[in-house]
Design a protein around this nucleic acid. Structure first.
Lengths: 153, 153
DNA sequence: ATTCATGCAAACGGTTTGCAAGCTT
DNA sequence: AAGCTTGCAAACCGTTTGCATGAAT
């Protein structure tokens, strides 16, 4: 499997952009936490531990770059923060079938894979003429622990 | 079917809140455009036609109120605006199965109903112990017209 | 040496809030 | 009359941007 860090460096060079320690540090911070859903500020705090001089603006700029290169995914939970995550799968294609479970009690975000929407997509295409190219599913509810907690009360 | 406007007035009184022309005007603006997805600014512009003295802050405050009362739904397309829509169905329950098709070309938002996720919910409950109470599906693609337009090129 | 990237601070823009004046009840 | 609501403007806050300095090629 091709290392994401190497892929990033390669893509940067291809585009005439520079491989800076900040950019690499930010990717590493995300890579250390696969399937976490970090805000820019959180990423900033993580990177600062290793590189205290980094600026928040650099984090924002790098995040944007990583998203354009499809190395990370955006997630908007509607709480005023955009979150970012790095997939832990090789193929980019799979990101298409990667969805979220959001716990209403503890706020944790879990991930699940599923192709079960393909039917639905076909149906929409036929009935409405809408050509689906991507989809996003969020499920709100209670995670295992919080569901148990709630039952006790 | 109970009029949404009456329901709003009733709910306001129940809560010791006041029935003001501004609040009613805002609900009417939304009611005139069922299944549209309006930003606060857009609602503001609509209401201003009838009541030019209304303030944007009032629109924001009323929208918040309407959302808390479950009379309208929020929709976040990730473009920096929160959008609001009023359902055209009677039962609140149905809002649960009401999803969005977002055209990547013209930006229009279509609505579709579907219960096809019930399977998926059950499956998640069993495999992960996550208790789903609500879900949200967004499909990105090309609407009928834009898909046709794209084929021509 | 050239060109891109960084850090800082200021700007941005949608949304929220404090407050005095104005309606609802 | 009492209390909630309004409109205004200022504050908020996550994010973006301009600019001079610094690093990568």
């Amino acid at each position: 499997m091709p290392d994401k860090k190497d892929r990033f460096k390669m893509l940067l060079k291809e585009k005439g952009l520079k491989v800076t320690t900040q950019r690499v540090d930010i990717l590493e911070a995300l890579e250390m936490r696969p399937d976490k859903h970090l805000t820019a500020e959180e990423i900033y705090e993580i990177v600062k531990e290793k590189n205290p001089d980094i600026g928040l603006a650099t984090v924002y700029r790098t995040i944007q770059l990583l998203a354009e290169l499809n190395l990370i995914d955006k997630l908007n939970l509607g709480d005023g923060y955009v979150r970012y995550e790095i997939g832990n799968m090789d193929e980019e294609k799979k990101a298409h079938h990667h969805h979220h479970l959001i716990c209403l009690s503890c706020g944790n975000v879990l991930t699940f894979q599923g192709d079960l929407l393909d039917n639905l997509e076909n149906q929409i295409q036929k009935s409405m003429g809408f050509e689906v190219v991507d989809h996003e599913v969020k499920m709100y509810g209670y995670c295992k622990d919080c569901a148990a907690e709630r039952k006790k009360e």
